[in-house]
Design a protein around this nucleic acid. Structure first.
Lengths: 261, 261
DNA sequence: ATAGTGTGCTGGTCCGACCAGTCGGCCCGG
DNA sequence: CCGGGCCGACTGGTCGGACCAGCACACTAT
């Protein structure tokens, strides 16, 4: 899209807001590790003198940092605003917005989830250690036990299993994406009029399928693990996505698709 | 992690900031389509009377909306703040933050990029139409032509080719992730002391490889397209990632890995 | 030593003011 | 008559000061 001939030689002379400079400086300090999670920023009145700006400006800057999840203010706390540990709420919010604004349908979310979690399983199969395998087995048992506690508890156990899978894959981005897309798809699904929670039989079936995934990971069968995960998700979402989006899901399902050595 | 026995019956009585309510109401209006991109919000002084709060509060709310990329204010514009079309800058910023805070190394970014772009190619091979194929061919020719214009122009042409691939895959999330991770990885790479731009020979090689990808997509050979893309990215990043992260990349490279029918 | 209280600070919200920038209509010159 | 430049009304950006409720800590009284 960028025509190199037209490439600007000069930067746009956009006026820089004062609060933006404040944001930038504090961000920089956090990114550079000069401000570590748990540490405190000076109070607003102190910052006001340090930056030589009014409190309104400081507060606007803090609002931006707060909405980015970098900082938290509590009224009355004499220690000042707290620098927060990094969290994925920012990505989550952005992606939810993408979904809510209607740019994103359940079909695309489901397909993406199949791809991401499939890769998680594939990688996990390749790199898993024995203790990790044991933890997975434990999680699978937890799922079985959770059937009796109802669909909510079962979902939580299912998520725990999948999270473990993502963690074993040893890729932070994969883990974050998996968790985010799962939640966003869940939100969207909950708003779907056709949605109904899992029945006991479906939960039993899900446990059986996760056991097969577990076996594939034990065997270091990356392709099998990937396909199993994809198919399970496909069956889960099949009934909810619009007919127009089904073909793409079937494509990703792995009917005539991925097979690994 | 959630113990259903301990599940709260009551919502936490967290005090709600006034500016948060303002943010929520405006967000809601945008998400519900009552405020479309290009439309204008009332002026700050007008909002102040509508919400019955002070201008400082309105401004803090607008700062939050602005940092989320939903709205833009320009001083002096009598039409008021503008509602923006959705953009991925929010996700991009969040992911950059994840990378900058050091939670994310080049290795993980590269691996993730291999996975994402590999899937793009795989899907593209499956669903591409004739016009899309022609556009891809055009983009490949553009890459060849861009060699003479230097590494920057070549990179732009390369990105154009990859963007096209992502677009053909027909999954918004995939496209967004591809673009974001590409940029973030690029930023990180540019900070790598060992980094140096592509030489002419490397660019020629890249064109040849993209041509092979193109051929695979023409043949609807999803697995081949995926593997080609992965290997190319692997070779690109191989020299820059730390030795500790190399094994994971090799794993994803597809040495003993994905092969499709 | 401990429990209760008080105080000094915090952040949250409001008010009023000034400045620079932008848009749109008005006026003037062609 | 038409077009271009000027001006004013309003915009957002920033400032200063003010008040309130809430929290942490130290001090006090038991």
């Amino acid at each position: 899209m960028v025509d190199p001939q037209t490439a600007r030689r000069f930067a746009p002379a956009r006026p820089v807001r004062v609060y933006e400079r404040v944001v930038q400086q504090i961000e920089e300090a956090i990114y550079l590790g000069q401000l570590r999670p748990g540490e405190r920023l000076p109070s607003e009145r102190e910052l006001m003198t340090q930056f030589a700006v009014s409190r309104a400006t400081i507060r606007e800057a803090l609002r931006v940092l707060q909405s980015a999840g970098l900082v938290r203010s509590r009224p009355g706390d004499p220690r000042g605003p707290e620098v927060l540990p990094f969290s994925t709420t920012g990505i989550h919010k952005s992606m939810s917005a993408l979904a809510r604004v209607g740019q994103l349908g359940l079909g695309e979310l489901a397909q993406f989830r199949m791809l991401i979690e499939g890769e998680c399983a594939s990688l996990a199969a390749a790199v898993r250690t024995e203790p990790q395998l044991a933890a997975l087995e434990n999680a699978a048992n937890g799922m079985k036990a959770a059937i009796a506690l109802g669909p909510e508890a079962f979902d939580a156990a299912d998520v725990a299993f999948r999270d473990l899978l993502a963690e074993i894959s040893a890729n932070t981005l994969l883990r974050v994406c998996a968790s985010v897309v799962r939640e966003v798809a869940g939100d969207l699904l909950a708003r779907n009029p056709a949605y109904r929670p899992n029945g006991v039989e479906e939960m039993r079936r899900a446990v059986r399928r996760q056991r097969r995934v577990l076996a594939a990971i034990r065997d270091r069968a990356a392709g099998r693990a990937q396909t199993l995960v994809r198919r399970q998700l496909y069956d889960y979402y099949r009934g909810y996505v619009s007919p127009a989006e089904l073909p793409a899901l079937e494509l990703t399902r792995g009917q005539s698709a991925p097979r690994r050595a």
